[in-house]
Amino acid sequence: MTDLIRNPVFVLVRPQMGENIGAAARAMLNFSLTSLRLVDPRDGWPNPKAVAMASGAAAQVLDHAGVFPETARAVEDCDFVFATTARGRELTKPIYTPEAAMAEAHARIRAGQRVAVLFGPERTGLENDDIARANAIITVPVNREFFSLNLAQAVLLTAYEFSRGVHGAPAVDPGLAGADVASAIEVEKLGDHYEEKLDAAGFFFPEDKAPSMKRNLRNMWSRFGLTRADVQTLHGMLRQITRRRD
């Protein structure tokens, strides 16, 4: 299965500045996307300013970019095409957020389809003739008073949403910068240590409330999501406190 099938094809329609093409290539490679096509780039192709902006590794995206004279030719082998635009709503098409669009892209790619995403020129965006060749529209829910995204921003946002579906990164990483999470037995022994010392200090009073107090303490330890380093620190703190008291 080729990269064109595994990943969406990003199509820059009539891009104007080589620097923006290079920046778009960098944004794509940030998220492991390499299938780039250009439609009638204003300053011709290849473009040394694009290569300079691509900064090293991302130049490989430019090296393999396809160049086409018109939008229809650039997407003629694609099964489903998205057009990124804040306009064109007079054309009757489904309108997706980037997140929903890339979820749809994943589903279609898994089914063996080739998916493309069109991005318009910097100053004007996609024309209706371009949008007419798309199956659906992607619109970013941005400030209605200032809705223009530059080309690289639009590419980066779309590539990021596609990447989320590939890597399945959690919204919150409980690993705390790679620290090992404490095991259940480590948390249990920490609870035993504190219960023993607190009991000796007369903390669990009155006696009839001691069971619920101990249960609440155990629940607190399990709720904290402690790391092994946390457990060691808490043991050490308690030892030092009780040693000085004794």
Rank of each mutant, 00 (worst) to 15 (best):
P98I: 04
M213S: 05
R239D: 13
R239C: 09
D246P: 04
G202Q: 11
R218S: 07
V81W: 04
L62M: 13
S163T: 04
E207H: 01
L36C: 12
P211M: 03
H106L: 14
V187Q: 12
R164I: 01
Q16E: 15
V39F: 08
M53K: 05
L176K: 12
V75G: 00
R108N: 01
G22C: 06
A182G: 04
F80P: 00
R108G: 02
D173P: 01
M213V: 09
V9P: 00
F204T: 12
E99V: 10
K93I: 11
A132F: 10
A74H: 05
M53F: 10
S35E: 15
E70I: 08
G165M: 03
T85H: 03
Y194W: 15
T92R: 13
E70C: 12
D63W: 11
A200Q: 14
L12P: 00
D130I: 09
D246G: 15
Y160N: 06
R245H: 10
S212H: 04
V172E: 09
G236C: 03
T158W: 03
I21W: 07
A210W: 02
D180V: 06
E122F: 02
P48W: 00
A116Q: 07
N135D: 14
Y96Q: 10
L190W: 00
L4H: 06
Q232Y: 00
V67A: 09
R42K: 14
G175D: 11
Y160C: 07
R108V: 09
A25F: 08
H106R: 13
T158I: 05
A74G: 08
P170Y: 06
H106T: 12
I109N: 03
G165V: 00
M1D: 08
E122Y: 01
G88D: 00
G120W: 06
F162L: 11
